[in-house]
Every structure is written in C-alpha cells, then in structure tokens.
Design a protein around this nucleic acid. Structure first.
Lengths: 138, 138
DNA sequence: ATAGTTAATGCACCTGGTTGCAATTATATT
DNA sequence: AATATAATTGCAACCAGGTGCATTAACTAT
C-alpha cells in the first residue's frame, strides 16, 4: 500500500491503471519482466497502452517503490520490499540465481579510490555459466 | 590486417562492405558507437544497409577481432588490440573515463566461491558520478 | 455537486538493434 | 574464363522501449 501513498504524497494522480500496476508488482513473488507486467495488466484491464505501463514503471522507480534492472534490451522490475540483490543468469540453461548485494563493494571502493568515481550497483543482471553447465558440457 | 585474415581463415567472404567496416575500426582511436560506425561506413559507401553493418560487427565480435559493450540500448565497439578495460560515464557531465580490467576480479572470485558461477566482465560500461560533479553540484 | 486546472492516457510514430527471405556476389572448381 | 554454390547483401518488417501531442480524467476549490 505504501506505493500508493508515496504517489499520493508526490501529488501524483491515482488512476485505475496505476493502481492495477502497483497491485501486480505487489502481488508478484520475485521479479517481473516488462513483458509479463504488460501481459498481466492487459489481461485484467484490456486497452491499457504499453506507454502508460512503461511510464508508470519509470515513475515508480523514480519514487523508489520499484527497482529496474537491465540485461541487454530487457527490463526487469522488483518491488523495493524485496531488498537489494543481484542476478546471475546462466547463458546455457537459463537458470537464475539471486546473489548478495555486497559483492560489488570492492569495485565501488577501488573506483572511488583510483578514479574518484561513484557508481551504484543495484539489481545488476549478470550473464554467465553456472556450476552444473560448466561441469556437464565442456 | 589480422582481422581480414581471421575472417578468411574462418572461410568467410571478404566483401567490400566488410573490408570497409574493418578499416574503420582499425583506424579509430578508442571506441566507436554503432551510430558512428554506421555514419562512417555510409559516408564512404552509400547504400550499405545497417543490418549488414550490425551483422558484420557481431561477426567480428564472435571472431574475437572486436569487443562490444552495452549501456542500456547503445552499443560501443573496440578493436581488440586496445586491450581490456572498462568504462565510466558520468551521468551529469557525460565525461568518460577508462578504467583497468582488474577491478571486477574480486566480484568474479566471490561469485565463483559462493555460487559456483562464472562471469566474464569485459568492456563494462558503468554510469555514475565523477569527482568534479560530485563536488560542484550538491 | 460543479467547474477549473493540471496530470495522465492513448495514439501514432520514433529509436536502436534484429531477423527472414529473395536477389546478389565472393570464392572454389572446372 | 565460365560455372556452380554457398555466403552475404539489401530490403522490409519486426522487436522492446520511449516520446510528442491532443484528448481525457483525477483532484481542488468553489
């Protein structure tokens, strides 16, 4: 519900489309791809335009209600209550693993020390090869 | 020249389009965006289709002649002779900094140890804030 | 409850990049 | 040099995501 309140506090309008999108993200276990969100929204409320959905998702991200990750073109969204973590996707079998939020700490440290550059790593999606696939196929 | 030989060795055909694309990447200092490559190719050989260019770039990447990086939608290409490095882009001023190839080593180590997952980090583009921008604007 | 204001929607179109397919062209063979 | 053949090209259409703009709808003040 806090998402709705956050939008309200920002002086944004609570349209049925936005309520529905928020509901869907709330109800989801784990992450949703943009494509899934569009599909679920249009199933429950046919005619909602994809641009409305993308704009709402951007809005929710800006409001801090949702995190957005990218791998290549594809976008993935998480409810903020899930907390920070990153994603490993096996490029052979497609399996996904969540990993802790702290693995990039050393990178942040060295970028800051060496280059004075500050980078946030949030919900990074990494493509690689998992243990099983590395053992089975050569 | 070695790019041309590599293509030849793989039994691929040396079309004028491919020669031109290889030339352009050879002559470039540092990286080129896809958009720049398309522009340069079409300036010297009008009528070359963008799909030909993208396919050739993918081919060169697969052949190991060129590295491809992505930030969001955009793609950036490097000649392999330049060696491995990563990129920092300041989201405020747009400045780009190259950084060493080894900063992700700790991440690779912990992913491997904790999850048995193997990830390659090559020519990663990271968006953040540089020292100057962090100091000047609050 | 009504009217006014301002944000949000749907639409059509745009972007960078990708793909299937028929026509073309580089190479190997004769 | 002529031919066969398989790879490559250009095209047109497609994909996910994004944008400008006129219409519509949510909130505010009356």
């Amino acid at each position: 519900m806090s998402c709705i309140n956050t939008l309200k506090e920002k002086g944004l309008k609570l349209t049925p489309q936005r309520r529905l999108i928020v509901d869907i993200i709330h109800d989801a276990e784990g992450h949703l791809t943009a494509e899934e969100i569009i599909r679920y929204v249009q199933a429950r409320m046919p005619g909602v335009n994809k641009s409305t959905i993308y704009r709402t998702l951007d809005l929710l991200e800006e409001a801090g209600c949702v995190y957005k990750s990218e791998l290549g073109k594809e976008c993935i969204y998480h409810h903020e209550q899930e907390g920070h973590h990153h994603h490993l996707i096996c490029r052979r079998c497609g399996k996904t693993i969540d990993c802790g939020s702290d693995i990039f700490k050393p990178v942040q440290k060295s970028l800051s020390e060496k280059y004075g550059f500050r980078v946030e790593f949030k919900h990074i999606v990494m493509s690689g090869v998992c243990k099983q696939c590395r053992n089975t196929s050569k």
